[in-house]
């Protein structure tokens, strides 16, 4: 009796998990499947083709927007990471009047609706008479991702023993040397996490980019958005599939890398 009950509960659990996975991955599966469809319409699967994949590489505007996305994402990530890390260290180390206010202000770009930040940035660029383009796009992306780097680096710094820095100075390292030899390696996981966040945020931002970009500097997410306005076409499916494959590859590599790192640490411990 009891065993039967347990069996039923287990079966229900499996069904539950299966439904969740289906709910999450069915839409994605649809995109992938229809990217190989000979028909232009996402209704019935008529036959297999790679035609749409070829079309992507003929689409100049798409390629251009992809290039823009990469440029903006990489540049803004580097700038954000440097500014955010320095800011986090400053906020951690120094006590000054109004520090609480600065702390609170850091949260505003995070919680503010994106559309308002977009309009605000557009206004300031207009006032400053800056032509909209790659540069304004980069500035906008730096603006909204700095707090994320500050938060991740600060979280790391909170567990950091300041006497480690003192030890380095005590042993003859100057301030700059101490930073690069000791401080930076210790907070590196936080810096990298912040950089990854900034990169991701920049790569898929649509709303703020929409307000701050010019006609020649469309990014990939914006390009896709404009392509699907007239319905989802198979080439968009193909592009989405490619992005999906790229993302999965990145996840596998980083996770795999992490995994092997952990493994070596464990084996080292055993020695």
């Amino acid at each position: 009796m009891k065993q039967a009950k347990e069996k039923i509960i287990k079966a229900l659990g499996k069904i539950h998990a299966g439904l969740i996975l289906l709910f999450l991955y069915l839409p994605i599966m649809v995109v992938v499947v229809f990217s190989f469809n000979t028909s232009k319409r996402n209704i019935v699967f008529q036959g297999f083709t790679l035609e749409w994949y070829g079309k992507i590489f003929e689409n100049q505007r798409l390629l251009e927007s992809f290039k823009n996305t990469i440029i903006v994402a990489l540049t803004s990530t580097v700038i954000t990471t440097v500014i955010g890390t320095i800011g986090a260290i400053g906020l951690y180390k120094y006590k000054f009047k109004g520090k609480g206010v600065v702390d609170a202000l850091m949260y505003i770009p995070v919680v503010i609706p994106e559309i308002i930040l977009g309009i605000a940035l557009l206004s300031i660029f207009a006032i400053m008479k800056m032509p909209l383009g790659i540069l304004t796009l980069i500035i906008a992306h730096v603006t909204f991702s700095i707090p994320f780097v500050v938060f991740t680096v600060r979280a790391r710094l909170n567990g950091f023993d300041p006497s480690i820095e003192e030890a380095a100075m005590d042993l003859g390292a100057g301030r700059i040397r101490t930073f690069f030899e000791v401080t930076l390696p210790c907070i590196m996981p936080g810096v990298l996490a912040g950089a990854m966040l900034a990169l991701t945020l920049s790569m898929d931002d649509v709303i703020i980019s929409f307000f701050t970009t010019g006609p020649t500097s469309t990014t990939l997410p914006m390009q896709i958005y404009s392509m699907v306005r007239s319905g989802v076409s198979p080439d968009v499916n193909a592009l989405s599939t490619l992005i999906l494959v790229g993302t999965i590859a990145v996840v596998v590599i980083t996770q795999g890398g992490l995994f092997s790192l952990i493994k070596t640490k464990i084996t080292k411990k055993k020695i």
Binding site: D161, E166, A167, D170, A173, P185
Partner: peptide, 27 residues
């Protein structure tokens, strides 16, 4: 501190967590 001929042993040890024992001592 880095110009003085004195060295300190900290209560919290303050070893460099990312460096091996060799590199810690060699610092």
């Amino acid at each position: 501190p880095f110009e003085r001929d004195v060295n300190t042993v900290f209560q919290s040890y303050a070893l460099f967590p990312h460096k091996t024992i060799y590199d810690n001592i060699a610092f």
